[in-house]
Nucleic acid binder design. Structure first.
Length: 447
RNA sequence: GUGGGUGUAGUUCAGUGGUAGAACUCCGGACUGUGGCUCCGGCUGUCGAGGGUUCGAAUCCCUCCACCCACCCCA
């Protein structure tokens, strides 16, 4: 049997109802904050990611789905095939399934000269991303991210800490409105590019005499990415890590003030957060503010979303100066977290129409058409003689009401409507049926 | 890439060398104008795959595969 390949999965009803509810809420919140949707291609030139996310990161160095396309986009370089003699070969273009979406958004910003509009661009996206990692709870090879970016020329205020705070406040609102309880916001500043270089250097030197006491992973990290040492969870390394230099001591004056301003605004607005100087982000483009929202109930992958500022990203892609800040929500993880709280869709269907006996199908379809055109969600069964069967099917369909369409009803122009939860039954005139079904308050179903 | 766990009916699982099972689901009936309950009957399996040991393997051995969890890393 052919199956979905490793790390990918089908999303099926009723789960997709929850996914759609989350996405509808996201679009609603984004609109209120004046963000507008951007859709970028699902694959890009490989260089986009190596130059933004960073050549040395795990994502680029070992997790990307990359292939060579038979493209003419790159100047064709004929390579003489010595063996076959005459036939040439074209060097293809290296393409990659996007492992994240910020790079694509910034590429589009540069390509379409969005900076020339002179205003701040507030963009959001919802879509699949791809990383070739070993799957586990909350981690898939095709996964979904909901993200947003505020980016623009400095003259439009893109560097202002108010946008860091605005993004964080929006996230708090979004998580609250979507129904996630008990989230935690962790905040840090990794400083500008200069600050980070100096801090990296300081860490390397501080680690040098201590390395032999530390775990094998840390010895490796000290070489490749000293910041990652801070993220180590091995107990015996903790006392050593506690004594390492802190990022905050290496922030320049501007970064320090910027970070303080973000914190002050969050305090004023009343968003709770904790500063975690050991929080490390794995993408090279982050500068200054970085953050993570976490939630229990996610297993080892506790981060439900992450993000930060990327003031130099546009320039590293040969674009104009365009500081920005953004985040990505792991939608799969958000759904997992909601489900771990017992979140489900309560009402699946408003009304189930039960045609009773021979010849009632045309009447049922006509009534269904009328109701559906009035905006009522309706499903119809096939004609049966045993009402018991219809009730069971209505129940199984998750309907709130059952509407009985029999000869008596059609002749009288009024229908028997029964609330499946309360067992209350009334006769309703055909003309008033849609209004009746729509106006009735949903009652909690007996379980 | 590394480690651990699990693979038996649609689902959850029991079954430690001797006829493949239970519960739920599903289908039919009791029951052709009022559901959730009850009762009766029924369907469903290459026991993850391949090989080996044995008179005999779901069970023991080997190899492989898949899924889950964790490391790593990240959303």
């Amino acid at each position: 049997m052919l199956k979905a390949v490793r790390g990918t999965r089908d999303l099926l009803p009723p789960d997709t109802d929850l996914w759609n509810r989350v996405e509808a809420k996201v679009r609603d919140v984004m609109e209120r904050y004046n963000f507008h949707e951007i859709r970028t291609p699902i694959f890009e030139d490989t260089q986009l990611f190596s130059r933004s996310v960073g050549e040395e990161t795990d994502i680029v160095s070992k997790e990307m789905f990359t292939w060579e396309d038979r493209s003419r986009a790159i100047p064709a370089v004929p390579v003489l095939e010595v063996a076959s003699g005459t036939r040439g070969r074209f060097s293809g273009q290296s393409l990659t399934l996007r492992p994240e979406n910020t790079a694509g958004v910034v590429r589009a910003y540069i390509e379409h000269r969005l900076g020339d509009k002179g205003t701040l661009q507030k963009l959001y996206y919802i879509g699949p991303q791809f990383r070739r990692e070993r799957p586990q709870k909350g981690r898939y090879r095709q996964f979904y991210q909901i993200g947003a970016e505020i980016i623009g020329p400095p003259s439009a205020g893109s560097e202002s800490p108010i946008h860091d705070a605005e993004i964080l406040e929006m996230l708090a609102t979004l998580l609250d409105e979507v129904g996630l309880r008990d989230w935690q916001l962790q905040l840090n500043s990794v400083g500008g590019a200069d600050d980070r270089a100096r801090y990296n250097q300081a860490l390397r030197e501080a680690l040098k005499p201590l390395l032999h006491q530390m775990c094998a992973d840390c010895q490796r990290r000290a070489e490749t990415n000293p910041l990652r040492v801070l993220d180590c969870k091995v107990p015996k390394d903790q006392p050593i890590i506690e004594k390492l230099p802190k990022v905050s001591e290496y922030l320049g004056e501007a970064s320090r003030e910027h970070f303080a301003a973000v914190g002050a605004m969050l305090d004023t607005v009343g968003i709770p957060y904790t500063i975690n100087e050991r929080m490390v982000r794995g993408l090279d483009y982050y500068t200054r503010t970085t953050f993570e929202f976490t939630h229990g109930g996610l297993g080892a992958q506790s981060a439900v979303l992450g993000g930060g500022r990327y003031d130099g990203l546009s320039e590293s892609l040969e674009g104009p100066k365009a500081p920005g800040i953004g985040f990505a929500i792991g939608e799969d993880r958000l759904i997992l977290a909601l489900q771990s709280q017992g979140e489900t869709i309560v009402e699946k269907l408003r009304a189930y129409i039960a045609p009773l006996g021979s010849g009632m199908n045309p009447h049922a379809l006509k009534l269904a058409r009328e109701l559906r055109r009035e905006g009522v969600s309706v499903d119809i069964g096939d004609e049966v003689f045993r009402l018991k069967r219809s009730f069971e099917l209505a129940e199984k369909a998750g309907a709130r009401f059952i509407v009985i369409v029999g000869e008596n009803e059609v002749a009288a122009g009024q229908f028997a409507v029964k609330n499946l939860a309360t067992a209350e039954q009334v006769q309703v005139q055909r003309a008033e049926l849609a209004a009746y079904l729509k106006d009735s308050n949903p009652q909690p179903r007996k379980s």
